[in-house]
Structures are given as structure tokens and as C-alpha cells.
């Protein structure tokens, strides 16, 4: 069996990811059901399966650059189908929080057009701000 070895800096990142998400990415055997069940796949530059693969290898830069977790809508379609019980939405949330917790928003509430806010239901703003602002 080939062992995946990671460097110290990667170890810190991966430990943090594991702790925040509560997921062990090494459980994944890359079947790809997550990508296959993802309704947002078309708009992702990196498929969910690849995200886990990158995490397994500690590819921090590639992970941070992917738009995957910003496109994810936390619909849990992947998670209910995963044969290895990996809760991928939790991994996506952890990746989002790594940015959001640095006081960097993905959506700026103050810059959203007032007419849009008036039209949208409250539930859109509450959920959107929860997932896309820090």
C-alpha cells in the first residue's frame, strides 16, 4: 500500500480541516458519487471528488483557489449518497470558514442593491449571509 506523506505545514492545515469538519478525508476511496450527485457541478472549477483528493494530498494552494466550496449550496446530496460516510458539506463549510474567519466576506451585505434586498425573502439573506459572510 502506498502511504500518502505530507509535510509539516500541510499537516497543520489538514489537522485543522479535520478538526473543523469532523471528517477524515482519508476514508474516501474516490468513487466520485459526490460529484455525480452534485447539482452545482457545472459551475464548479474543481469537482467535489477532486477536492477530497486534494485534501488527502495536502494540496493547500489548489484547495484555496478552487471555487467549489463557494458554489456548494450545502444541499447534502453528496453526503447522503457517500458509501464511505464522508460528510462532504462539512468539509466545504470548513474550507469556507477558513476564509470567512479572517474577516473576509464572499458577499458584502452593504453592497447588495437595495431593490434586490427588498424583493428577496428574508430566508435568502439569512442563509446567504451565514454561509458567505464571516
Amino acid at each position: 500500500m502506498t502511504r500518502i506523506s505530507v509535510k509539516a505545514g500541510q499537516r497543520v492545515f489538514l489537522d485543522r480541516l479535520a478538526k473543523m469538519s469532523g471528517q477524515n478525508v482519508q476514508q474516501c476511496f474516490q468513487c466520485g458519487i459526490c460529484s455525480g450527485s452534485c447539482p452545482m457541478l457545472e459551475n464548479m472549477d474543481t469537482h467535489p471528488r477532486k477536492i477530497i483528493r486534494m485534501a488527502q494530498f495536502g494540496m493547500i494552494e489548489e484547495l484555496e483557489q478552487a471555487n467549489t466550496f463557494w458554489i456548494c449550496a450545502s444541499c447534502h446530496a453528496c453526503n447522503v449518497m457517500c458509501p464511505r460516510g464522508v460528510d462532504l458539506p462539512r468539509l466545504m463549510e470548513a474550507l469556507r470558514l477558513m476564509t470567512l474567519r479572517k474577516n473576509q466576506n464572499k458577499v458584502e451585505p452593504s453592497r447588495l442593491p437595495g431593490e434586490m434586498i427588498k424583493e428577496y425573502p428574508q430566508i435568502a439573506m439569512v442563509s446567504g449571509f451565514r454561509k458567505l459572510t464571516g
Partner: peptide
């Protein structure tokens, strides 16, 4: 209420 939301969207945070 929508007028208030438009002026203060951070309300939903």
C-alpha cells in the same frame, strides 16, 4: 419592513 432591510441588510447577520 423591506425598506429597513434594504437600508440595513446586515440585520440578517
Amino acid at each position: 419592513a423591506e425598506s429597513v432591510y434594504a437600508l440595513y441588510p446586515e440585520l440578517f447577520r
